Simulated assay, not measured.
Amino acid sequence: MNFSALGWGFSDGWVMFRRNLKHIFRNPDSLFISIILPIILMLMFVYVFGGAIQIGTEYVNYVVPGIIIICVGYGSSMTAVSVCQDKVGGLFDRLRSMAIHPSALLVGHVAGSFVRNMISTTLVFIVALLVGFRPAAGFLDWIGVITFLSLFMLAISWLSVIFGLIADSVETASAFTFFLMFLPYVSSAFVPTETMPSWLHFIAENQPMTPLIETLRGLLIGTPIGSHAWLSVAWFGSLLVLSIIGAVVVFNRQSVK
């Protein structure tokens, strides 16, 4: 193993991470949007629709896992936009001409995205507690929640990096992430999939968001998890590996043009 190259990559990645971290707090608009929209959505479903939806428990307890997933989806759109901004603004080209490890450019964006998503997710959890969310999770359950959310955040962040690299404009980069924010609506996030028409029930049960939401729901409020945990690991572990490889391939091909 080339430890000098590894140390070089880590050092440059840390610099780029600090740069993206500063952008989060110097430009809080994106952080604010990724927090306020999921909170508004949660309040709307809890107070407007919650009374009409019977799921055998307090609706706020049922809906919080899906809201958290949507929160991460909004954050991922910001990642795609920031990567595209750096690309079309010429920053990537300028940094490639310097003695900077190539992986640092992408790792810095992913690490910044991870921190932004953790901040927004924590704040959404706090608001959920204020409106009546009462988790029954123990210490190990919370470790599991953090682990599954971290896997999801990393997988979606790397996928968003690809979207940002292949997009020709920030508007296109944002549009690419639309399906990430749409998928939770066709899942068990807001209503049990059994209440859906048979054709939609099949889609909801066999897409990646449902097992992840059911796993988080089981860890947080004690509903049955079954095979959902392993399906979540399979879906998002595979997505993480493929997205990292895809991002590196796309980035390297653009660098030789």
Rank of each mutant, 00 (worst) to 15 (best):
I244W: 02
H101C: 07
T210M: 07
A128K: 06
S255K: 12
S174D: 13
N20A: 12
S227I: 13
G75A: 06
S34Q: 09
S97K: 12
T210I: 06
G7Y: 07
L105A: 09
S82V: 11
I146V: 15
H109R: 13
F17I: 05
F25M: 09
T195V: 15
L6W: 11
M209I: 13
L149A: 08
L130P: 06
V88Y: 07
W142P: 02
S187N: 02
I55K: 00
S255L: 03
T121L: 12
F178S: 15
S11C: 09
V60A: 02
Y59C: 03
S198T: 15
L242R: 05
G66I: 02
L129D: 08
S169I: 01
A111Y: 04
A175S: 13
T215Q: 07
P65E: 07
L140S: 12
S34Y: 05
A136Q: 13
F32N: 06
F114S: 02
G138I: 04
G56K: 01
G112I: 01
Y74T: 03
G138L: 07
L165N: 02
H109N: 13
G13Q: 01
V241A: 15
I221T: 05
I55A: 01
S82M: 10
H101Q: 10
A99H: 11
L129G: 14
F49L: 15
I40E: 04
L129A: 14
V110C: 01
T147S: 14
G13D: 04
G73H: 00
P211K: 04
V241K: 09
T172C: 03
G73F: 03
A137D: 02
L6Q: 12
R19C: 06
N252D: 12
I100C: 08
G66Y: 03
G51F: 05
S120W: 05
N206S: 08
V233G: 03
P197S: 09
E58P: 07
G90F: 08
L140W: 14
F163G: 07
I221S: 00
L239K: 10
I156W: 01
I126E: 02
Q54T: 13
I39N: 03
L239T: 09
P197R: 11
T122P: 00
I40L: 15
W235Q: 09
M42C: 00
P38D: 05
N2F: 11
S150A: 15
L242K: 04
P28Y: 09
Q207R: 02
I69L: 11
P38G: 07
L151M: 12
V170E: 15
T57E: 14
